[in-house]
Amino acid sequence: MIRRKTTFSLIGIGTVIAALVVFDSLIGGDWSPLFGGKENFVEFWQEDLWPPDWSLLEARKYPACEASIGFFCSKAYIGMLETIKMAFVATVLGFIGAILLSPLAARNLVPKAISFPVRIFMAATRSLPSLIWAVIFIAIVGLGPLAGVLAMTFYTIGYLGKLQYEEMEGMRSDPLEASRAMGLSRSEITFLVVIPEASNGLLSQLLFMFEYNVRHGTVLGLVGAGGIGYYLNFYIGLFMYRQVMTFIIVIFVVVVLLDLLSMFIRSFVNEESDVKRPSWKTIFLPPEAAVKEHLEKTDE
């Protein structure tokens, strides 16, 4: 037992040392930019990044704004909304593709002769980042959101599919055995036993994937596949970093909000929430205040 523990710590220490050695060789042993880098960054920050150009949150001049609130005609809003729409469509389509394929990749549900090729296909769609898929789809369908949606869908099938079949393989075997003994068909077992039993995990993965796709959707515009990345790319090309900064802040805020939203939705399916469910308010409060608020609520 003790020997096992020491072995694990030695492996741990060895890994950290190996990482430092590899790092050193990557940068050719020259660590000086890391220290000189600080002044560079402060200068860059003060002269080029701050303050951000908030005018991007106001209505753009052309075409004329028809919304009553100018923000809804701003470049930030239009770009971000397009990215979110693309991520939404790709996540839904990718989820459908993944949920149909993943039961065919789970080794506790199908023979190896089926699961193996399906896994290979999923691994292939996952092997390239969505940015590279976007370049490929642009070559096929041209510039714009269609290429972005296809790229993200493709990647989602491989990535979400892997998470899903792992979830399915981890499920308890007794519901499977009971339904197999009863004589239920393979598709009945998949849709009425496996998917409901795995539903909690599948839902959190779906929300995670949406958030992931929003984040990655922001870079797809860099290659011309639509969304807020188009503007990012545009301003980076013109060295207009104050404008870039505005978009970065918008992306940051949206991602944080999505994270909170998905946390809130997931709280409805967590098993702990059978006992207690957080209210909308608590996710915005600091931890101690949230606990207090929760206790007051349950006292009623």
Binding site: D174, P175, A178, S179, A181, M182, G183, V193, P196, S199
Partner: peptide, 16 residues
């Protein structure tokens, strides 16, 4: 199909 019923030791219920 349906001829054999099985109640496993762990019951085999779908928890969710």
């Amino acid at each position: 199909r349906g001829g054999l019923g099985y109640i496993p030791q762990k019951l085999g219920l779908i928890r969710h």
